[in-house]
Design a protein around this nucleic acid. Structure first.
Lengths: 286, 286
DNA sequence: TGCGATCATAAGCGCGGCTTATCGCCCGGC
DNA sequence: GCCGGGCGATAAGCCGCGCTTATGATCGCA
């Protein structure tokens, strides 16, 4: 078994078609035929069912492909270790100012290392951590942190994003009930719990939010808010980091503030992770 | 980068010597010279310092080797997924009867799968979990379970192992203070916390145990107890699973019972793990 | 100073994985 | 009912890569 074979395997599973996979991998189709056969022989199980129209993984094949993905992610970890790269995941405005302060301080202390910030869609930083795509992440809570070491490093109040000219856009502050009748942006990407927390569901009076359109990330969300189709909630730093014509931010007075955790794989022996955690811990102390 | 190269890398780091590594890998020494050079070139960093007498990893090299180990463990996971093998770690008598009941029920429900019980030395099941050498394990608490999902599935009272003919061997039950003056077996393998918990350190009166010889695993421990050089503590199931001439077990009345957790890597998408957890959960309900 | 480690380099070879060419199969359209 | 297109499998040949053996360079040590 070699990484090359696992790379082929994953691509084949993704395309469901040897020809297209071959194209994407810049090899010929028979090379893949051969690789699949060799792997199936080595592992002693059929990995794909062949039919005219393509291939589809068997039950075992699905598990094997999943394990192959993990192995390839681990191999990327070898590259990252060699490059002294620390891959830091976050979403939207992350942990606000803390993020940039940490970056500066970390660069000062570890000039040999390189930070690689990776932005994800709503809730994506948690998945990236679990999949080994980042070494450490600023995670917006609530999130599933099982299997991850973590500590809360940042809190910030929430704000409401409104289209310019909205009847509430001039207010100095708003309450959740003030915006109860407004359609609220939400996402299918993040877990239910995350969505409910952001939407303050249920509302103080027990009612449910009025759900508006869905979106996958901050840009998409803000575009739609600026278009006037709905409003959104966000952390205060979002108002400082993202702006666009037609968008107005107003403090949300009575909602629980966002808590941001720094999280990393629990068993992580990566010394850069430890160094990064140390810096964040230090700078997050008020 | 290929798995072959990572395998070589790890072996080289383990032997600290290209020649011996080559011997162990059944290749010639220049093949390793070449591989190291190729990897160093690909990753863009020096991985080993060469000196007459051998090679030693650089700072980056150490991290890379560690990452390589993880990758190889992940690759073993591919094999395990293909073989529908669930590698179950435990130490000594594991979770007692529960273990065999679970095995039977799991085999009944998943005839296509195969359980592969892996016995480890004291405290070793936790390390094996972290290293990806097993998919799931029965862990004797206390243990470092950060990064692992876990739940307590079993409890059992403790017993004292004594040499036959010992002055306390005939008693129906003993207290910790009864055996206070006896040299007690212990181990350097497991974390300090583990050792102290087993030794009931400090004793009810605040004193420390009288430390006897060390040992690495249950067989070694019981041999020495049977020889009369020391006594030992263990869970009740140890008295049922391990016996030998010259060894007597007596209940230990006043010590906290052993708690056994089922633990597995938190992000584990392996469906066999989920199935195993379900069976254990079910059978462990009283 | 010479010997015995070590790793590096050089040269040649053989295998494995690639390529192109082709086949067999199934389906869908006419 | 037949033909054509798309699929994966097979065959044959080639070529690069990673191995081997042989040798060199360097250092520590007696």
């Amino acid at each position: 078994m070699e990484l090359r074979q696992l790379r082929y395997l994953v691509t084949i599973a993704e395309t469901g078609n040897l020809g297209r996979a071959a194209e994407r991998l810049f090899v010929s189709q028979p090379a893949l035929s051969q690789t699949v056969r060799a792997l199936e022989h080595e592992l002693g199980v059929r990995l794909f069912d062949r039919h005219p129209g393509g291939v589809s993984p068997t039950a075992v094949g699905r598990d094997v492909v999943e394990a192959a993905r993990r192995t390839l992610a681990a191999a990327e970890g070898v590259r990252a270790a060699a490059a002294r790269v620390l891959r830091v995941g976050f979403e939207a405005s992350g942990a606000g100012d803390l993020t940039s302060r940490v970056r500066a301080e970390f660069a000062r202390r570890h000039p040999e290392a390189r930070l690689e910030p990776k932005r994800y869609d709503w809730g994506g930083e948690t998945a990236a951590l679990h999949a080994g795509l980042v070494d450490v992440a600023f995670v917006w809570l609530p999130a599933d942190l099982t299997g991850l070491a973590h500590e809360i490093v940042h809190r910030e109040p929430r704000v409401v994003g409104l289209p310019e000219g909205h009847r509430l856009a001039g207010r100095a502050a708003l309450t959740v009930m003030d915006v109860s009748d407004e359609p609220l942006m939400w996402t299918e990407r993040a877990p239910r719990e995350w969505v409910d927390w952001w939407a303050v569901n249920p509302r103080p009076d027990g009612s449910a939010p009025k759900w508006g359109p869905t979106n996958d990330n901050v840009e998409e969300m803000l575009d739609q808010v600026a278009d006037g189709v709905a409003i959104c909630f966000g952390p205060a730093s979002m108002a400082r980091y993202y702006t666009r014509p037609g968008l107005v931010w107003v403090p949300l007075a009575d909602a629980e503030p966002l808590r941001v955790a720094l999280a990393w794989p629990a068993g992580s022996a990566n010394p850069l992770v430890a160094a990064f955690v140390a810096v964040v811990r230090e700078l997050s102390r008020p």
